[in-house]
Design a protein around this nucleic acid. Sequence first.
DNA 1: TTGCACACCATTGTATACAATGGTGTGCAA
DNA 2: TTGCACACCATTGTATACAATGGTGTGCAA
Lengths: 211, 211
Amino acid sequence: MATPIHQRLREDVLASVFAPDEPLTEAKLTERYGASRTPVREALQRLEQDGLVERRGKAVVVRTHSAEEIIDIYESRIILEQAAAAKAAVKATALDRQLLMGLLTQMQQLDPGDGRALAETNRAFHAQLWRATHSPSLIGLLERLDQQVRRYTLTTLTYPGRWPVVLADYVDLLAAIGDGDSARAGEIAARHMSDALNIRLKMYAEDPRTL
Amino acid sequence: MATPIHQRLREDVLASVFAPDEPLTEAKLTERYGASRTPVREALQRLEQDGLVERRGKAVVVRTHSAEEIIDIYESRIILEQAAAAKAAVKATALDRQLLMGLLTQMQQLDPGDGRALAETNRAFHAQLWRATHSPSLIGLLERLDQQVRRYTLTTLTYPGRWPVVLADYVDLLAAIGDGDSARAGEIAARHMSDALNIRLKMYAEDPRTL
DNA sequence: TTGCACACCATTGTATACAATGGTGTGCAA
DNA sequence: TTGCACACCATTGTATACAATGGTGTGCAA
């Protein structure tokens, strides 16, 4: 079975294949993905519900976010990541903790200049942390929020001096989770996300085009 | 313009028009809503993404939740309602507060035996509280969670002795919001939702069929 | 009776014809 | 040149024909 079209379209949108104001016409997408309009329309509808594209008049375009919207999403995410870390401290299994340790070790060996690799393993780490909550609803909410700002997240990790702090935060976080210290795990996660927001704001102040 | 089909289907699903294991075949729905398969399929897909229906094999059926899943959703909701109340205390405008007061007054005049009216205004109150956060992402997350358990929420409000407590909680909550006391508003909301969960658990223990 | 292979057909998945619509460019008036 | 009315057509919306598929019942073997 080939990869479903909505998934391919999703990847392309997240990889910024389409320009911000470029109309995602059904004709263009049927050609690109070699399918008829029906599955293409379904894919567009799905991504619209996920908040990745939006209807602008008749056309569908990649959804962009204002600085205010991004801040808003970050603020919600701080809350959810705090809750997730706190819950993971209580619910994580030995396997969850091992997987997290493995990912952390992997991250410590990465080239801090390779933004793509940083972003990728960082996301894997977060995803595993979410799974460690064993809470389907939390996982769903976090995935939803993450997807909406994924296109923008590469940058904070490569901000000067950020990466070592990220790694140190994760070490502390795993220690707290290992101790089953829910409150501390939550605090670390909240501060971590809050730092990420502050860096984004600083970057925005330095150059508004970075979003 | 007629009401879109996905909206009508959504209302019907939430109103428990369909039995838990009844297949929502496209043929049945095209007849019911007087449209062709294309819009019906779109509606089914939307509701599937919203978590209201699910594919079981080839068929689509109304999604039901196990006790564990409902508890999980409540727990996430406690977190989000706390965050929303805290944020509303900071962000609510005079208009927001007036609308909330109006809804509360309305609720105080309802017949406590009219479960449907209770559920309806209660939802309106929550929705207005969410709006008072002026946070699109929080509102979206809360709407999503609410929808998934909406079919089950009627019952806690009519549980013996519950309604007066609900009203008292809302009075306290609005007072905290009026004072701009973010922490207290959050605490009240969290305890309120946590009480609702406990009542649901008690009901479940008394009669597992109530879900 | 029980278990299984298989064929049928109800149902979903995909492609596409036709209808509806809204965005854009043309041409005319001022 | 500027503003506006209007017609065209690109694009989306809807209906439906045809293809694919999986669930179910039938009949046969043991």
